[in-house]
């Protein structure tokens, strides 16, 4: 789905300091990964404060043991983006559970050297997603719950 660049500029008008860079990256990455889209929502920080931030929300295709899975993720962009890394989460649906590990905590927060060593302009969303796809292909961050019931997960739009 093509992202309307004007709509995106408008979304980012609230406080994003490097809007042009951010618009360009999001346009680029959503062209490559069509199941991700920009959404404005309230992000809750560790101290309880909230701020309206842009997130890239949706799924990325991950190949694991020969099958492709659409892993649900949410990447929050701070208003200092791209000079700070996005805050990244895996977003399990009701039929999934988080598999904690080296790269994933119990809240679904994603930890990667790529994020830790983030430096604009060498680091960007496209590179990050490529790294995620490789890492998740080795260690999936979510698994399906062991149940025979089939239900479509509630997926937030």
């Amino acid at each position: 789905m093509a992202i309307n660049e004007n709509a995106l500029r408008k979304m980012l008008s609230k406080g994003y300091k490097y809007r042009d860079l951010t618009v360009r990256e999001i346009t680029n990455v959503t062209t490559q990964y069509k199941d991700l889209r920009p959404v404005m929502d309230n992000y809750v920080f560790n101290d309880g404060s909230t701020k309206e931030l842009l997130s890239l929300t949706g799924t990325v295709p991950v190949t694991y043991r020969g099958n492709i899975y659409n892993i649900p993720i949410c990447l929050w962009l701070l208003d200092s983006y791209p000079y700070n890394p996005p805050i990244c989460f895996v977003k399990p649906t009701s039929t999934m559970m988080i598999k904690t590990g080296k790269h994933i905590d119990a809240n679904g927060k994603i930890y990667l050297p790529y994020l830790h060593e983030w430096k604009h302009p060498q680091s960007d969303l496209f590179g990050l997603i490529q790294v995620m796809i490789v890492v998740f292909g080795e260690e999936p961050p979510v698994f399906s719950r062991p149940t025979t019931q089939t239900q479509y997960p509630a997926f937030q739009t």
Partner: peptide, 14 residues
Amino acid sequence: LNGGAVPSAPPTYT
């Protein structure tokens, strides 16, 4: 403005 793939995950190991 929906579309988007249905999220999926590998089956749990047994």
